[in-house]
Design a protein around this nucleic acid. Structure first.
Lengths: 230, 230
DNA sequence: TTCTGATAAATGTGATCACAAAAAGAAATT
DNA sequence: AATTTCTTTTTGTGATCACATTTATCAGAA
């Protein structure tokens, strides 16, 4: 196996090797650094991360548990391929989960928090305008995360995060085409609905945001996006 | 720390120690063998499982990833406590996820598969009648699993399984009181709706099944069940 | 040329160890 | 007696090794 190169990630002081390995692998998956179908090995990843195999093994157990990597019967670990049908299920589930999480968060959000979420949205716009699409994707996730996490018992957040991770590479491609895919500002609609404490309107804006963020949710649009993703 | 005793579980031939450890710990959590708030240690579990710490460490990474155990900032791993608010979120999410999964499965189910699901339901009834409540809980999960998994791309299944696991001990208590909590046979309604390929009716029967399976979804009913759970 | 079997290499698994960090217990101080 | 500090024990982490399993390669036979 050729020497593997992972995208760089700063390592904070005092973080365990395992936590760093997990974060770095998670980021690599999110940005599509592994081609779908690729097999990864413990020792290969440990070399790339300059660690021993143990933290990598533990990180891989986590990543397979949240669906980011796939554990095969022959004990190999591979980066999952996403078929059009699976993509459709992932987006459908994202719509269901995030709409639900948004509803369950409305009662917990203060005006101050909503203001901060609006500032996050401005940051997304700025990143898109300055061409920083990867930054915009991260900021978009933070926008959504801040809404849902307003409910302290929001069980859905780790589930939603796992979907974002599985969809990460494709959503990155969609973000590269944001100017043609995304016409109506659904974030603005969601923020307005949050201010009105209108659960239905929030859920609908989030659902529309997800559908439109991928250029539409019909077979043609999905086929187009998956073709772009290779 | 006192010597820990885990519920017994047969170990299939050829299974890795890690897979056995994970399955056995998962079962222990499901049946409420650990008191909520309890701290577990790697070496303690390894002793109880008669293994070295390595497979246990990897199993713990999995169990914390699916929410069955909680990783604390001081590196301790504890069995989560379930507050009434969190319980409400878990059940709400279960309703949303399982309704969605049922809808997305309807188009994939053959008459033969529906017949087999009906047989599973008979098995649940038989287990309840003969007082085998633990067996009934397992069979109930299998009933649901067979419906949802009919869709080969059903991304929601592992998420649903993680909710079942988090709710396992409490659902076990509810099953002990099934004769007072559960009056209308929603499984039968779901099966009939499956035969008619009526997505809405299936989703509604599943949702009602979940609500009524815990004796109701109002504050009083939740309070009553959580009091029973201790 | 293709298939089969044997061998070598790669890869996953489990055990063990030493070290780092946190918790518990004991001693000293206020 | 209560609090603080120091010491000991417990517990998590990472490294390394040997063994088990899977994959790849090579040689010989058909």
């Amino acid at each position: 196996m050729k020497t593997l190169v992972l995208p760089a990630l700063d390592r904070p002081e005092g973080i365990t090797t395992h936590d760093y390995a997990f974060s770095r692998l998670r980021q690599a998956i999110m940005v599509g650094a592994f081609r779908p179908g690729t097999s990864v090995t413990i020792r290969g990843l440990a070399d790339a991360l300059e660690s021993s195999p143990t933290p990598v093994r533990e990180a891989l157990r986590q990543l397979t548990s949240i669906g980011a990597l796939q554990f095969l019967q022959n004990r190999r670990i591979v980066v999952p391929r996403i078929s059009p049908a699976r993509f459709e299920e992932l987006i459908s589930l994202r719509i269901v989960l995030e709409s639900h999480a948004a509803r369950r968060a409305v009662a917990h959000l203060s005006d101050r928090q909503i203001d901060r979420i609006a500032v996050l949205d401005d940051g997304i716009e700025a990143a898109i305008l300055s061409g920083q699409k990867a930054q915009a994707l991260i900021a978009n996730q933070e926008f959504h995360r801040q809404i849902y996490s307003a409910n302290p018992d929001q069980v859905a957040v780790p589930l939603i995060e796992s979907l974002w991770l599985q969809l990460g590479p494709i959503l990155g491609i969609a973000m590269e085409h944001v100017n043609e895919f995304y016409v109506v500002d659904r974030h603005r609609e969601a923020i307005d609905a949050l201010r009105r404490r209108d659960e239905n309107a929030v859920a609908e804006a989030i659902a529309a945001d997800i559908r439109e963020g991928i250029g539409g949710f019909d077979q043609q649009a999905i086929g187009k996006l998956l073709a772009l993703a290779g």
